[in-house]
Amino acid sequence: MNPELLPDNPYLLLTPGPLSTTKTVKAAMYRDWCTWDSDYNAIVQQIREDLVRLAGDGETFTSVLMQGSGTFCVEATLTTAVPPDGRLLVIANGAYGCRIAEIARRQGIDHEFINGDECTPPDLDRIEACLQSDAAITHVAVVHCETTTGMLNPVEKIGRIVKTSGKCFIVDAMSSFGGILVDMEAVGADYLISSANKCIQGVPGFGFVIARQTVLEQTRGQARSLSLDLYDQWRTMEDHGGKWRFTSPTHVVRAFAQALGELAAEGGIETRHARYRENHRILVEGMQRLGFQPLLPAQWQSPIITAFLYPRSEDWQFQKFYEDLKSRGFVIYPGKVTDRETFRIGNIGDVHAEDMHRLIDAVGDVVNSMKR
């Protein structure tokens, strides 16, 4: 399929995923693949190897792909990694950390829940005290980039506390992996979870887990689910050269392979991170000129997605703001903070500096139209 024959999108997705993808990623889905075929399975194996390299250490870690959204992978990891006699500490400061706790509750996983303020990083002293006082805790889980607010949580500092306590460390890097350097060994992560449709800029349909192989090998027979058995999925891919246990999202996998190639061609994670940071800088400076204030202080803010406070104006209506921006070619996200009125704008995907400048111009036009 010639990518140039594909129609242009009617709008740019400024969201934390699904996100705007290149025409070449979309075009990769125009061919059908057989899940048993060696050519297709070779693509899967290459993806698995590339993911491990992006995480920092190909000798210590392995990877496994899992059908479904990123949350499927979070649930697969929790329900496979934590044994029946284990206890999970969930560290949350937003909706996605709370979702981890909800998975644990529904699956009957014994857990402790530190639910902090959405607008501040996790309390390191509280985490350390909890681990020292509760010897039953075996696993600790935290979100790296909490897209409720755009908060970038200090996983390196948390990881040092977790590993000093001798616990297994699970990092939900859903919205950060591929756009922010994450060295799993340096972080102390035993599991890192992400999804195809985030910073690697693929399309929705599967997620992936990068795991310390010696830790994953110890989970055989522990899974609470058949379809979400992370160990069995990994073992099948290992033993059968990239074969999935059940029907795999072949078109999405091929698009992801293309996206990985485009990440490398761009210059890797460091270069993509720099682009996202520049997108974020243009966004914040432009929005502040128009009277919008970010929810978080700059030192806690990720370059992935930014939450802005509603302006104090009688003319302000978020739904009208959203629809008017959409009509001008931009789709943004509603807020998710529980006690403050916010909306969010993402900086990731096939989005570049010129797009952010166009967005600021469009926001200025919409704001002026709302005052008339």
Rank of each mutant, 00 (worst) to 15 (best):
G221W: 04
Q218G: 09
L325K: 01
Q213F: 04
Y333D: 15
L263C: 07
R340Y: 08
Q301M: 12
F256M: 01
G291V: 03
R245F: 02
F208K: 02
S227P: 08
T214F: 07
S302K: 01
R235D: 14
T214R: 13
Q222H: 14
H251F: 08
A257S: 12
F208P: 04
G286L: 05
R281S: 07
Q288V: 08
T338Y: 14
A265F: 05
L295M: 07
W300N: 12
T247W: 13
V337I: 09
Q233I: 06
E285Y: 10
G335L: 02
G207C: 10
G221D: 08
I332R: 00
K336L: 14
N279G: 06
H251V: 06
L309G: 07
L283N: 03
R245H: 00
G242D: 01
Y231G: 04
G221E: 06
L325T: 07
A211V: 03
G329V: 01
P294V: 08
R281C: 04
E270M: 11
E278V: 06
G268H: 02
A257P: 04
R224E: 00
I282D: 02
I282F: 05
T247S: 13
V337C: 12
G268Q: 04
R277V: 11
A211H: 02
L226D: 14
S248F: 04
G268S: 01
R212Y: 06
H280W: 11
V331F: 13
E341Y: 10
R254G: 03
L216N: 00
V284H: 05
L295V: 05
L226I: 14
L283I: 05
W244G: 09
Q213R: 14
H273K: 10
L260F: 03
R289E: 15
R328Y: 04
Y310F: 12
G221A: 05
T247A: 12
R254Q: 11
I269M: 04
G261I: 02
L260P: 02
T338Q: 15
D324C: 08
Q299E: 15
